[in-house]
Design a protein around this nucleic acid. Structure first.
Lengths: 362, 362
DNA sequence: TGAGGTATCCAAAGCGGTTTGAAAACGATT
DNA sequence: AATCGTTTTCAAACCGCTTTGGATACCTCA
């Protein structure tokens, strides 16, 4: 059943039927009802392909995921972000098109998406420092919203991000307040913008208390279980091991926990851990009571917000870039506790003579 | 730059240009080269929307992910499967369209996908016992490939699946060979087809050795960290705790490990664990050496195979359904070991008098 | 030389909608 | 009754490509 056929049965022109269904005012209310009723009766669904050609709009939004040839990792927050954005698209009549491409083909993919008219706009994932995709998309003329930010970008752009810096600053302060002085950072890859901001929050908080950050306990890697394990294992093996760790992801934290337990230490007593929790639906940080103390911010919500922002921007072109900064909440779990003073392996720090900081290796 | 304009500049008809670019034989080789060169020079990309309307093909494949209102979980294997399928689509010129819909809207979504012509075929995820989507898609006339199988389906259909039953049977046998007699099952939700098959493999292996399966140590839940934790905690608290656990997912296994360590037991010595490992890129089962002993099968590979199968089927309509069964390999990690005999909490089992089976609670 | 092929190219008709510009119908106004 | 402004409807052009059904030019062979 197509428009022409439906019009024929109603003894109306395709023009009028089209207008009736699309809510244009220049059609008699009685006819409109007749048309709508018939459309339902014959189960008429306008052909998407024809609409797209006629209107010149794709009614679709693109997400490009580069499959890096070196790290074969699928961004773990991706699934939840997509779920959030997808809900919005469904409600708004947009399709989500995903392009999985080798990362050297990423630029060409964006160009094609535009020139072939496959999508009306895109969401940019996992931005890096001064990310080349932003000028590219501007040049190409594809509306976009960034999930995260890209420090160093010359021009303004639209984004949805969590306040990573403040989150990590607060987390660090929380550990400092518990008496910890030697705090390790298990960060994501530091060419990723979010990782840079997290590190900044961490070092700032330390500096304010007069603590120099120590590269020996600052790790930067992909956020996998294994890398968390390696980092924690290395840190705990140091002559002056950290008494607390700040971990960028719940996935790395799984590995961190493994290393801690393997070292015979007890999480929350001998070693404190704070994580950043994206509220991944398949890796929740506990249920009623959180496992890890965490800075928490829903990546799914970010997906919803980014999608809404993009759709709204496409509806009002020429507007200024939009920004949305989400604050993470600090939730207290069972993985943090005051610094234990009965330890032996390393002595007091110069700026905290009253507190005998130490790792609690048995 | 569009076809008409390009034709004008070449002083050719759009017909000829179209044919030249699409490799039709009825065009002079010299003209073809001229056309191809001009297309490259002017960076001509045919408009997808027009192609789609003209050919009646969407050149797109749909994936419908229901967002269950009750369990808000995003299937964790989804990301990797999508990555695998997406690679194939990119290479083959297909778009992947993802629909995230509330699960009560799933049926209507499939109907719309067909009647609006948004996609040419779909991949069905996470099939259940006698899944209603299969007859629906058949009725609607949308080609599809199922990732997994649906026991009880009357008609044949195309699928790509891993041999879950054999995998779990082998894993159980492996534990039995190590002397374990009390083996818990931490399964996924048992209305999911894969979970049914896994359970079948497990109970079969037990039955063959004359061991009745005990509902008290068979758990079925969503495969999250928390549910794994709960199951293992409950199992280990029993008067006759299991000495080994068979766990359906590496994510649940994280929780299982937490419960084991919390109970003061040592993984691989006091309690053995075998998992099923989908080789998720963000949750690898170790790197050089596997953490858990596991039955392993790449879900990303399954994604590639399913996509290839579907594309091929769409190219040869009317063919018989296709099937592809992948075998999981059994890899030995550090999480399994022979049954310890120095334990006390429960006695020898009738059929293994020589081995004093016991949990090693200190 | 003329018929019959073959190679090459093109005009025009779709595909199924939207949208422009105009016409028809209708009432109200002068 | 003629004019005007609305309301309502429609014919036709258009979106940018594919594809059908010729047309034309060029060979080949009898």
């Amino acid at each position: 059943m197509n428009l022409k056929e439906l019009a024929r049965r109603l003894d109306l022109s395709p023009t009028t039927v089209s207008r009736a269904l699309n809510g244009y005012p220049e059609v008699n209310e009685a006819t409109r009802e007749r048309v709508v009723a018939a459309a339902r009766r014959y189960n008429y669904q306008p052909n998407t392909r024809a609409i797209r050609l006629a209107t010149g709009r794709a009614m679709a939004i693109g997400h490009v995921i580069p499959i890096a040839t070196r790290h074969e990792i699928v961004n773990p927050v991706f699934a939840d972000f997509i779920a959030g954005a997808g809900e919005v698209y469904s409600r708004s009549g947009y399709d989500m098109v995903l392009s999985v491409v080798p990362d050297e083909a990423e630029e060409q993919t964006y160009r094609d998406l535009k020139s072939r008219g496959t999508v009306d706009g895109v969401i940019v994932h996992a931005p890096r420092l001064d990310d080349p995709r932003l000028p590219l998309l501007r040049e190409v003329g594809l509306p976009f919203v960034v999930h995260g930010r890209s420090s160093g970008s010359a021009e303004p752009y639209s984004w949805v991000d969590v306040n990573n810096r403040r989150a990590f600053r607060r987390a660090t302060e929380f550990l400092l307040d518990l008496g910890h002085r030697r705090i390790a950072l298990v960060n994501g890859l530091e060419f990723m913008d979010f990782a840079i901001r997290r590190r900044a929050g961490y070092t700032e908080a330390l500096a304010e208390r007069g603590i120099a950050s120590d590269p020996a306990i600052m790790f930067s890697d992909e956020m996998t279980e294994s890398s968390g394990y390696r980092a924690a294992k290395a840190a705990l093996a140091l002559p002056d091991p950290p008494t607390a760790l700040l971990v960028a992801s719940i996935i790395s934290a799984m590995g961190v926990r493994r290393a801690i337990e393997e070292a015979g230490l007890k999480l929350g007593r001998d070693v404190s851990v704070i994580i950043h929790d994206d509220e991944l639906s398949y890796l929740k940080n506990g249920e009623e009571v959180p496992i890890f103390t965490a800075t928490r911010s829903s990546v799914r919500l970010a997906g919803r917000l980014a999608a809404e922002m993009l759709i709204d921007m496409m509806g009002h072109p020429g507007g200024p870039p939009r920004e949305r900064l989400l604050e993470a909440e600090l939730i207290i779990g069972q993985s943090t506790g005051p610094l234990q003073s009965n330890a032996t392996s390393h002595g007091a720090l110069p700026d905290a003579p009253a507190l005998a900081a130490g790792a609690a290796k048995p």
